[in-house]
């Protein structure tokens, strides 16, 4: 099952990149898709059947503009810090806990954290995220968790769990 979905994904990507339905292109596509799915299907994500739920797609499409808004805000923030003559930064590495369980959701949460205001994921250890924060302004752990993870967790839980 996993091999089959891997094969179909690789083949669709191949045809999309070549953008032609020539017989040679299709034949080579089948050959390379078989090759890739034979050797690399075990690095493909588990529970791939989740992609068939329409509800997840709706939330994913809602997530994209939401994420894009925060990404833009983060960039303006960092750009202002960079061109400010005094460099107003208070960096440090903090530790926060997440409530998400599945690996896929954690990966997406880590990537989202990296691209949003002043935070960068350094390491993940089980439920603990080690995060480099460019401007630490609070010592309260609950407030930190709400600031870093709280924005994305509800949406990601609906998409990936």
């Amino acid at each position: 099952m996993k091999r089959l979905t891997c094969l179909v994904t690789v083949f669709v990507l191949w045809v999309g990149l070549f953008w032609s339905l020539d017989l040679v292109v299709l034949g080579a596509g089948v050959f390379f898709a078989l090759l890739v799915s034979t050797y690399l299907s075990d690095v493909f994500p588990d529970r791939i059947y989740m992609i068939l739920t329409p509800r997840r797609w709706v939330f994913f499409l809602l997530y994209l503009p939401y994420f894009f808004y925060y990404c833009l805000k983060a960039n303006v923030d960092v750009a202002l810090r960079v061109i400010h003559p005094d460099l107003p930064i208070r960096p440090g590495i903090v530790k926060v806990r997440t409530t998400l369980k599945s690996e896929m959701a954690k990966t997406f949460l880590a990537n989202s954290i990296t691209l949003t205001p002043g935070t960068l994921t350094v390491d993940i250890d089980g439920d603990d995220f080690y995060i480099h924060w460019i401007n630490i302004y609070t010592d309260d752990p609950a407030k930190r968790t709400a600031e870093i993870c709280g924005r994305f967790e509800p949406m990601l839980r609906r998409i990936f769990e």
Binding site: V78, A79, R81, V82, I83, I93, L115, L120, H132, I134
Partner: peptide, 29 residues
């Protein structure tokens, strides 16, 4: 413009972690 700000951050900020932050965010977006 964001690309340019990211690269200015790469030059101006003080250590690897801050540089990686500014540069990755701005240049990716």
């Amino acid at each position: 413009v964001f690309d340019l700000f990211g690269c200015i951050g790469l030059v101006r900020l003080p250590d690897v972690y801050n540089r990686a932050q500014a540069a990755t965010k701005c240049v990716t977006l």
